Amino acid sequence: MDLSEKAKLAKLGDKEAFVLLIRTVQHSLFVIARTMLKNDEDCADAIQETIAKAFSNVHTLKEPSYFKTWIIRILINECNRIIRKKKRVYPVPYDMRKTSYQDDFEQIELFEVIDELDEQLQPIVMLFYIEDLSVKDISKVLGVSEGTVKSRLFRARQQLSELALWEGEAKYELS
């Protein structure tokens, strides 16, 4: 059963289908929350609120095939609410981040590079390169135009290439 079929069942009130959907997207939710919030407690709060809101409102889901995009949007709104509440983001030690990935050293390096980007570019880079969402889906998730997503991706690529040159070719290579 694919994600769309599970979402249809969940929309009709099937609680088990909803649980399966959450299990399917839980890693993505964690990675996005971690990127935005940088601390386990805030991530847990954001994900918990996201799941509660999604469960309460799954019946309002218009297109079941967009469940992942829909729930990521809820998560981003929750993360932004927490950020506004705290008005401050604390860095997380990189050894805590590596637990969610297979190849530790490459992922630590990836997070180091992403952390160097402007804050508004970080979620777009994570959604595009890590979560493999399309520009169209990212624009829906973040509530900005596709042109804004494209221009931010362009700026992110520019910053990444400057970081690669600044850090030296031995650390970050452009492909």
Rank of each mutant, 00 (worst) to 15 (best):
F67Y: 03
Y129G: 05
K11M: 06
V19K: 08
I124Y: 00
K140D: 08
K68P: 00
I124K: 08
N80H: 00
L12F: 13
L174E: 11
L165R: 14
V135D: 01
K87W: 06
K15Y: 07
F18Q: 06
H27Y: 11
V25K: 02
V92S: 09
S134D: 03
K171M: 00
A10Y: 01
L12G: 06
Q48M: 00
D40G: 12
I138C: 00
E112H: 05
F128T: 02
R88D: 05
I32Q: 13
N57Q: 08
R88Q: 11
I83W: 03
A164W: 02
E167C: 02
I130Q: 09
A46K: 03
Q102M: 14
E167Y: 07
D45Q: 10
E112F: 07
E109L: 14
A54H: 01
L142R: 06
R155H: 05
F128C: 02
D95M: 14
Q120D: 13
A7N: 00
D137M: 07
A44N: 13
D104W: 13
V125A: 04
E63I: 10
V141I: 01
L9A: 07
I32H: 08
A170I: 15
R84F: 01
E112D: 09
I138A: 04
E41L: 10
I47N: 05
P91Y: 09
K85A: 02
M96V: 14
F55M: 03
M96I: 15
S65M: 07
I72M: 12
F18E: 05
A156W: 07
P123L: 06
E173V: 15
L117M: 03
R155L: 11
F128M: 08
I32Y: 08
E41V: 05
G168Q: 00
L142A: 01
S139Q: 06
A7Y: 03
L75E: 01
S175P: 13
E41K: 11
P123W: 00
L21V: 01
I108V: 01
K68M: 02
